[in-house]
Design a protein around this nucleic acid. Structure first.
Lengths: 318, 318
DNA sequence: GGTAAATAGGTAAGTACTTACATATATTAA
DNA sequence: TTAATATATGTAAGTACTTACCTATTTACC
């Protein structure tokens, strides 16, 4: 073996690879200063160079300018002060602030280093601009993209798309009837209790839902039925979205979203004009999903509701 | 203010910028694992993934493969073992070596994480390949270039070229005569002592060198005369390179090289066929320079030499 | 067969940042 | 005017590596 696996790992080892290059540059920078008999640390550069512009600035202002934490600047300034390269005064009016400037020695060192910095910029620029892919430009593009949509959000998006692709929606079949009951009882027993009306409907979905002109859809993931959702017909124009249940171990797999979208499609196919649903305030993730599906909260008197547990009512026009 | 100066700093803050991006990726990676309820650290990835291939390998072999120090691997393995993800056995025959493999738990975790890693690679690749400058490709080009010629060597080369440009070669003028004497006496007194023959020649260069058909060149740096070198004519074909002196504070500024090259040029203009010189073994940097200028060491009996200090003789055909 | 040199791998401390937490002071809202 | 909140800064500890140094073996060479 002994082949280099890092390239094969590609984007997955990007952090490690960036660190390696960063470490290399700091190391070489250090040696360069040593070779030139300059007592200076590469990490001081951004702060030092900013101060050399002559503007009197504070720790936080520097941190914002060079995109590091104020703690990093605080530490750097401490070292620079110890090396007598910057002087620290407290602000005239704002006693929290500290004013930083280069000392005489600092300005002298800056002048002494200017040609070397010029050489560094020249050498690196000469190298990089000959490349097909310009490193600085590439980093800029990456940084910009991560600012638009974070690393985590990008991966989460891809993951959710994958999971949605992996979830299949299946139409009602009598051999699935027991899942309809089991999945609903699972969550009812967890959060509330099974009401008589539940027992009736769950025990005979064919009679109460299918034959009544409604629909039941199942979600399948990795060969298992992991979710259900039903449409209960009120009249030609109005249906109730009901009996949505997703098994606990399939949570976070976008099953609810895919099932919800499928049930909306089905409602449209049935020429429904309006969907309603009843739920409970404590079911936060469910309410969240309903909102993302386009349902709106509507005030309602629940004294006539079929369910004891209902205290939230939602509607969606199709 | 509050504008971002890092971009303005360009290549000079490259190390800092790479670290920032690297840190960001590790941070986000960590959060991603947390979100997915996976107990895993981003830094474990290269080692873990390599071991998951099923090949039984040692610490050093892993370090070579993923281009980090063996110490880093050793630390990672320690953590992985603590988390019961790898098992460590000692090698049957080589007792220095340790054999590493994933545990059952390790393989299970790897299987569990595979889809997420796929999502990471997909998301990052989707992003990066849309860029005009591909980050991975750019890093590859930079790494390759640094392998060919190191960061330090690149900058040193640019610096030396600059210094050579900043050194000017001036022809003999009688008002420079005192520099000829002073610069030579400076180094003679440091390493040896001033011989009578030196005093004679240095005191009257016009008579002993210029009028005798030789030449004297001066090197000027930042408005000051910092070096001299002379050609002493033996006959129509043969000259001696002599009285080369560079002031201490101008050392390392490529003065010698530029002066040497200029004196070779002058010798050619004078139709010299051969250059000779006498020096001393202890003058290592000088001998080094002569070699780089193309002089070869030749054995010689020094009993007839004009100088007490001579114990090295060199020649160069033109 | 003995010894110098090379190899394997561990530990401690350093590096250039970070986060978390703490304090002091300033600003805003009631 | 007071209390809540925001801002400025510092310190300690964490992170993902490194170098430096150490011991234990193995290999190479005379």
């Amino acid at each position: 073996m002994h082949y280099n696996i890092i390239n094969e790992l590609g984007e997955l080892a990007l952090g490690s690879r960036l660190k390696r290059l960063s470490d290399y540059i700091y190391r070489e920078g250090k040696e360069l200063y040593r070779n030139n008999e300059i007592e200076f640390e590469p990490r001081w550069f951004p702060v030092f160079h900013l101060l050399a512009k002559g503007e009197i600035v504070s720790v936080v202002e520097i941190a914002d300018s060079i995109n590091v934490s104020h703690a990093a600047v605080s530490q750097t300034v401490k070292e620079l002060a110890k090396n007598k390269l910057v002087s620290v005064y407290s602000h005239k009016t704002d006693k929290r602030k500290r004013e930083l400037t280069l000392t005489e020695k600092g300005f002298e060192l800056h002048k002494k280093m200017a040609p070397l910095w010029n050489d560094i910029a020249t050498a690196l620029n000469d190298m990089i601009r000959q490349h097909k892919h310009h490193l600085m430009a590439a980093m800029q593009e990456v940084e910009n993209d991560f600012e638009t949509l974070s690393f985590v959000d990008r991966i989460t998006k891809v993951k959710n798309e994958r999971l949605q692709r992996e979830v299949n929606i299946l139409d009602y079949k009598s051999e699935y009837a027991h899942y309809f009951k089991a999945l609903n009882i699972e969550w009812l027993e967890k959060y509330f209790y099974v009401e008589d009306y539940d027992k009736k409907v769950l025990g005979n979905p064919e009679k109460y839902i299918i034959n009544a002109g409604g629909a039941i859809l199942f979600a399948e993931f990795e060969g298992e039925i992991v979710g259900v959702c039903a449409l209960l017909k009120y009249n030609e124009e109005e249906y109730e979205l009901t009996k949505m249940a997703i098994t606990e171990k399939a949570q976070g797999k976008q099953v609810g979203k895919k099932l919800g979208l499928a049930i909306l499609e089905r409602a449209k196919r049935l020429k429904a004009k309006k969907l309603v649903l009843e739920s409970n305030k404590i079911l936060k993730p469910a309410l969240n999903l309903y909102e993302r599906l386009g349902f709106k909260f509507v005030y309602k008197d629940f004294s006539t509701s079929a369910y004891q547990r209902a205290n939230v009512y939602m509607e969606k026009e199709l």
